[in-house]
């Protein structure tokens, strides 16, 4: 009798371990990041990258994202070349990364209506790391969550020099929009 009870307990343990032991990671490899550095009445300075990788650990709210600089696409070839060669130096610094945590993240609280969370962490661009805190909107999606948001960065914070000649044509603050559909 005692043995069957023990067996039963062991069996229950195995089941619970099996379900909770599964890492609750939500991932995407095709997230999108757009940036906009245009100044009204000048040429549009904008690009989009549709192959951003991101991981969200649901149990802790840990969040990481990685974007390959060469994957940003502009409308004009020369602009893309300048972006890669002169400003981002993408041969040397091929990626930008983010590592951080969504504060008070609880997957049970996520609903179909977007809810604001604070995402804090380290943003690395052009080989330089800076601590940032941004608002992230999270809503429920099929098999995962959708996270969207936008924030602004200054090129000088990441040692990106913009020559005086084009200074007037590029915004001081660059707006970055992101949209990730994270799934299991």
């Amino acid at each position: 009798m005692k043995k069957t009870v023990l067996n039963f307990v062991a069996f229950l343990l195995i089941i619970t371990a099996g379900t909770t032991g599964f890492s609750q990671k939500l991932i995407t490899k095709t997230g999108s990041i757009k940036f906009q550095a245009s100044i009204p009445s000048y040429e549009e300075v904008a690009a989009e990258n549709k192959s951003v990788s991101a991981v969200l650990e649901q149990s802790t709210g840990d969040f990481a994202a990685l974007v390959l600089i060469k994957g940003f696409r502009f409308k004009v070839a020369l602009m893309e070349e300048h972006f890669n060669e002169n400003y981002m130096e993408s041969e040397k610094f091929s990626k930008a990364t983010f590592k951080g945590k969504i504060e008070d993240f609880d997957s049970a609280k996520i609903t179909n209506t977007p809810k604001n969370f604070t995402l804090k962490g380290d943003l690395t661009i052009h080989g330089k790391t800076k601590a940032v805190s941004v608002i992230i909107k999270i809503s429920k999606a099929a098999n995962g969550v959708t996270t969207i948001g936008s924030f602004e960065v200054k090129p000088e914070d990441f040692d990106i020099e913009i020559p005086n000649l084009v200074r007037k044509k590029i915004a001081d603050k660059i707006k970055i929009n992101y949209n990730f559909l994270l799934v299991k």
Partner: peptide, 8 residues
């Protein structure tokens, strides 16, 4: 080729 993704 746009690079190596360390996350995955």
């Amino acid at each position: 080729c746009i690079g190596y993704d360390e996350l995955f």
